[in-house]
Design a protein around this nucleic acid. Structure first.
Lengths: 115, 115, 115, 115
DNA sequence: GTGGTCTAGACCACC
DNA sequence: GTGGTCTAGACCACA
């Protein structure tokens, strides 16, 4: 976790979980780590992990079975993709184009910075 | 000012001043509005403007003449440009490329979103 | 705290913290008192302590872990030493030599004043 | 004048005048520049020069003849010397030794910094 | 008039 | 609980 980051830690954790689903490390229907396990793993307050899970549940990426744990939704993969796509286009791109205008950078200019 | 914004108001004010310098509305060596004047204009507390000015002074964009006011630095223009460029390249671009990789979007694909 | 001092209170607090690091009362990586705790101890407004912490964070002496508190940087000790050394050599010494010249005092003459 | 200096401008002006007396550019009994002349000279608000003159008058370095101007006191030279000496020993030296202790610098070490 | 500092008290996101 | 920001209002040195 990056504690000196503009992104809240709980969102960093949510992103981490979504990435592990995209990378097929966990599959639809599988149980994910418990709040406490994950909290111990990433050295974070359990409340923070809980908040990440709640967020993912709200987004329909995971679901909760009381007393058992959290599981990956069947359509988690597509949900995540469309979530990321929407956020990228609606929130990230406008900011990108705004900044590029200010700095007189064209889209083709970006290629030189691409690692 | 956008009071319901993730960016703090004092940073919005700082950005506003930097923009007015980039737009050549105020030039190097010129005095800018006093803390109290600007606070009245943008309807915020003088302390908030003060904080924006202190930030800009730390960045070398403006300087203070005691009892007189704040003035635009001689190299303010370049300072601002390099400040913005650095932030863009070091903080914004890595995030951009990370997201594009996840979404399988190429740099050329961006052109279709450009207004 | 000395409230009738030419140095602002928030700088006195910053100096106090740096001294406690130099004196090894707190070590690298350790958490320091919270804003509110310290404010209570030294009988000042929390905002004033906050300002001291922000200054020290800008200088890289301490860092923040969100929702948890402030911690001493790994290289705080060296940072403080070099901060003080630089200030001494660049701002204090020239003034010293200027005054000594005016008063016809040599460096060796200083020894007689040393307690 | 150095407007970005910890020393107040009126004290810088007072020091300037005292220096010109020490350098024998003006002699005891001679009239010095008027407030307005000097203010124009150093590009400063006349109030600021006035304040420097008042300070010097308080210290007995100059005296005022109403409607005519300010004149250098007969014992200005000695007054200035002892003023500077006293300030140096009572205010400057303790600070010097305090800082040198913190930085583990000895009096002999100073010689290497002497231009 | 100017900026610089401080207090008191509030609200917020986050852990 | 933590720090971060903001307001309101005050006092100060300085120009």
């Amino acid at each position: 976790m990056d504690f000196n980051n503009q992104h809240p830690i709980f969102m960093q954790i949510a992103a981490m979980i979504m990435d592990s689903i995209l990378e097929k490390e966990v599959h639809a229907g599988e149980r994910i780590q418990s709040v406490r396990e994950l909290a111990g793993h990433v050295q974070v307050n359990p409340n923070t992990v809980q908040r990440a899970f709640s967020y993912l549940q709200d987004q329909g990426v995971i679901f909760n079975q009381r007393g058992v744990g959290y599981f990956v939704s069947d359509d988690a993969f597509d949900k995540i993709k469309s979530l990321k796509r929407e956020e990228f286009i609606k929130e990230f791109l406008p900011e990108l184009f705004r900044r590029m205008d200010h700095l007189n950078i064209s889209i083709d200019d970006l290629k030189q910075y691409k690692a």
